[in-house]
Design a protein around this nucleic acid. Structure first.
Lengths: 218, 218
DNA sequence: GTAAGGTGTTACTCGTGAGTAACCCCTGGC
DNA sequence: GCCAGGGGTTACTCACGAGTAACACCTTAC
């Protein structure tokens, strides 16, 4: 456990203790803090190797305390996924509202989405561990992701029609770049050598390039 | 449980029963069959939601049987990862031996690697569930993946020096396209509408394109 | 026919960690 | 001084599923 890590732990614990305003608001804030801390732990060690006792310890409390804020461990994981998919949806909406060209919108979406998931505030982690959720929760998240995928495919199709990019299989294209983005959580924070916003720029550039015409594109 | 699935089950069970030659060889074959069946299940339901009883049932035997071929459930997962990383290494070696240009080598590597992991024979699944392994096993696999990453970065650097692609952060570039490839296991086989080799071609094309020069590459 | 050994089964143990019951104490209001 | 109740703890229960012990059958070898 390095220095940076224990600093972070203290930050989290402070956040937990703080916000002593009206109790309903504090309840919500603590819940969010809890989910973030848990998400961070899930990202580092995986869902099943992270015990609730550990999460509790990170917040300087004991396990039963956690049940004041969440119903179950599963619910925490669901919340992490919910936050992540919400970020993606928000990034999409923002891109659409920009009024730019389709390709530009894809690039904006990618940059925004990556920036959001890498910002520490936003439970940077967990796009993995899909299966550890309840079947019900998995279905809920899957549905939202699928809908977003469809919208993105449409964006790719529009870019093709507009002649911005070479004709390609839109579904595969979306799988391609969403896979790359979702993979970030696997290595991010392992080496702190690069900052979120920079990653976002680089990835957006690669994605834009990956869709551009090449001689032997199918 | 659809028709295709039960067909597959029968195939697996047949493979298990078959190969009645000398016992050492059969032992090895059965072990491989077991690992493949397990890998397939892990890919569908996740490591923790797949019980050994289920895997055994898929092979039409009972749990204790499995322990004739593997030491533990963990070992099965390790084996899956070992196979996957070995495939990547083999694809890399083959690409290097081709004697093509660096960019061409990257493309060849990507296509070969994707083709291998999507071929049903090769336990198409599981590049997720990293954390469910023993710490020791995780370290072993991580080390091999890290080494491969370094080699691929070097290939990217060579492509830059050769002027084949625009200057970029080689580490990020590798993370980008390896992320996209490793993401395949999340959606592959969900819809059988597209074949492995075709995916391989499309992904290789996207990767090549993603590295090509663009006006605003950092 | 019987011993050897390979193939398989039934019926357990046992650790682990999620979830809970029951209690404790501190602070503020009267 | 005493009670209400929120924040917190200790010390359990209990299910699940990996791993194992012990037994059972069947075939081939002599």
């Amino acid at each position: 456990m390095g220095d940076a890590d224990s600093d972070f732990r203290e930050m989290i614990a402070d956040e937990w203790r703080g916000a002593l305003n009206d109790s309903e608001h504090r309840q919500a804030m603590r819940r969010l803090t809890l989910v973030r801390a848990a998400g961070r732990a899930f990202g580092r060690k995986g869902f099943h190797k992270t015990t609730l006792d550990e999460i509790a310890a990170e917040l300087s409390v004991t396990k039963p305390m956690l049940y004041r804020y969440v119903k179950s461990k599963q619910e925490i994981l669901y919340e992490c996924h919910r936050i992540a998919v919400t970020m993606a949806e928000e990034a999409y909406e923002a891109a659409i509202l920009s009024g730019q060209s389709p390709l530009e919108q894809i690039s904006l979406f990618a940059e925004d989405y990556v920036a959001r998931i890498t910002s520490t505030l936003g439970s940077c982690v967990v796009l993995t561990e899909f299966f550890s959720m309840t079947d019900e929760d998995t279905a809920r998240i899957q549905a939202r992701r699928a809908q977003l995928d469809r919208k993105l495919r449409s964006l790719v199709s529009q870019a093709i029609e507009a002649g911005e990019i070479a004709p390609c299989d839109a579904k595969m294209a979306v799988f391609f770049f969403m896979g790359a983005i979702n993979g970030i959580s696997r290595w991010f924070m392992a080496d702190g050598s690069i900052e979120g916003p920079e990653i976002a720029k680089i990835f957006a550039a690669h994605i834009t390039a990956s869709l551009r015409p090449t001689k032997d594109m199918p």
